[in-house]
Design a protein around this nucleic acid. Structure first.
Lengths: 223, 223
DNA sequence: ACCTCAAGTCAATGCTTGTTTACATATTGC
DNA sequence: GCAATATGTAAACAAGCATTGACTTGAGGT
């Protein structure tokens, strides 16, 4: 708390001893630009999603990747460039996922994505990234665009007719639920939500999606 | 983007020209410890909730309050102490609000809180603060405790019988929805959610609460 | 085998940050 | 009014930050 003299910052936001997953790269050629670029991207994405932009230092990312800090500036020109690259890849993942969203079984898809039970497992990180800001206006615009179009796709996937404003609002509330669950799971250990499996999430989310994104035109009964 | 040489940080996370509300304090005695302490607390809470812990500088807060930076350390001993003070006040507000939650009309209460249409208006900030971390384990424990107990209260307010695990999970999902809506409204301008009024939020939230926190024992029908 | 250039490292550099020390000034009890 | 003290200010400190240019080192073509 009170360092003897002029302690600038005594808060490691994430335990250094908790590195991003997938640390064991079996055979990695010692010098391969494309490979280390991808590695930096993956580690950065994990840190940014978990700790936010400001709390993440480029040295942390470089250490996670096991390379020198200067490579970040070489491959991405700046910390902000790296963040933008992370956001771009995450955005396309989320967009693709929203495109593949089936009209039936939306809740199941969401549950599996949130629990990270899917093949990729890093989709929760992609969602979290959409809530992190670097402070740059242009990059924040990207975030807003993704969220907007995903919510529109979600609204259309349910009731594919008119661009009803309330349908869009409801879709954004479902999106807010997904984001909120991601945040709660990642940054607070609230139980039982934090360690709920996809199967356990499925039942509540099914009810939620059914009532918020009604496949038929008429609203559900409101007691 | 690329400052000529050794530019450390070129990212103002929040526009300096967008100061916290309630800037006009009509008559303020020039020297009043309790008053400036409260002022610092209010401005800090706004910044922390909006930009997060790491992206907020003590100089920003002091400038918002119109006082010298050193006063933060005088009254709160450190930046982290100030953050903890913010979190403590916000926690008690959220706890009190959860206590006053009526068994009927939960959705209405949530909608009004989220839209900031209530008297206090700063409850969305209190919710956002519960998602912000300084990296300190002890303070993060406070956050977790509040979220846990609020979700338990929420679960009991709906179905006040058994401490069913699934009921708790559902309550935490409702909490996640509230937090997600707060974040989306505060940090991304996604429309129509960002500028939805309490009245517009009411209908969807009523459906959501009715299905997620069933007042009766039997589950709603799942198609 | 060697030469070359990409891939990676090292050691500053200047800036920002949180914090503190020394100083100024208003307020209050007498 | 006058000291005593609470309240606020200014300047400086040390550490950490992102960034950069000059350097080493390894892989691949000839």
């Amino acid at each position: 708390m009170v360092a003897s003299r002029g302690a600038a910052n005594a808060c490691p936001p994430t335990d250094k001893a908790c590195p991003p997953p997938g640390d064991s790269s079996p055979q990695r050629r010692r010098r391969n630009a494309a490979e280390t670029r991808q590695l930096l991207l993956a580690k950065a994405r994990w840190r940014f999603a978990r700790d936010g932009y400001a709390a993440t230092t480029v040295r942390d990312i470089a250490d996670d990747a096991g390379v020198n800090v200067a490579l970040i500036n070489r491959y991405f020109t700046s910390k902000e460039g790296l963040f933008e690259a992370c956001l771009t890849t995450a955005s396309s993942e989320v967009r693709r996922d929203a495109d593949e969203m089936p009209s039936a079984g939306i809740a199941q898809a969401i549950a599996h994505r949130l629990a990270g039970a899917n093949k990729s497992e890093d989709l929760p990180d992609a969602l979290l990234l959409l809530l992190r800001s670097s402070g740059d206006e242009r990059i924040d615009g990207l975030r807003r665009n993704v969220l907007q179009s995903v919510s529109e796709k979600l609204a259309r996937a349910a009731a594919d007719s008119q661009g009803n404003t309330e349908a869009l609002l409801r879709a954004q509330i479902v999106l807010a639920t997904s984001l909120g669950i991601s945040v709660l799971r990642a940054s607070t250990g609230v139980q039982p939500l934090a360690s709920a499996t996809a199967e356990e999430l499925l039942a509540p989310l099914t009810d939620l999606v059914n009532v918020m994104l009604p496949p038929d035109q008429e609203k559900p009964g409101r007691s």
